[in-house]
Simulated assay, not measured.
Amino acid sequence: MSTEYFFAAEGCYIRELSNSADDPAVSIAQARVEPGNTTSWHQLKNTIERYVILSGTGLAEIGDAAPRTVNA
Score class of each variant (00 low, 15 high):
M1E: 15
M1A: 15
S2M: 12
S2I: 03
S2A: 15
S2Y: 15
T3M: 14
E4N: 12
E4P: 01
E4F: 01
E4S: 12
F6M: 13
F6P: 10
F7M: 08
A8N: 09
A8M: 02
A9K: 07
E10M: 13
E10N: 07
G11N: 00
G11Y: 00
G11H: 01
G11C: 02
C12K: 01
C12W: 03
C12R: 01
I14P: 15
I14S: 04
R15L: 05
R15G: 07
R15Q: 12
E16R: 14
E16G: 13
L17Y: 02
S18R: 06
S20W: 01
D23R: 03
D23F: 08
V26R: 14
S27F: 10
S27E: 09
A29W: 06
A29F: 12
Q30A: 14
Q30S: 14
Q30G: 08
Q30L: 15
Q30F: 12
Q30M: 15
A31T: 05
R32C: 09
R32M: 13
G36C: 00
T39C: 09
W41D: 07
H42D: 03
H42V: 00
H42G: 00
H42K: 03
Q43K: 13
Q43V: 05
L44Q: 11
L44G: 04
K45V: 04
N46I: 02
T47C: 15
I48L: 04
I48D: 04
E49G: 06
Y51M: 14
Y51D: 10
L54H: 12
S55G: 10
G56C: 09
T57P: 10
T57K: 13
T57E: 13
G58A: 13
L59N: 12
E61F: 00
G63N: 07
A66N: 09
A66G: 04
P67E: 05
R68Y: 11
R68M: 15
R68T: 15
V70N: 09
V70L: 01
V70Y: 03
N71C: 11
N71R: 13
N71F: 02
N71L: 04
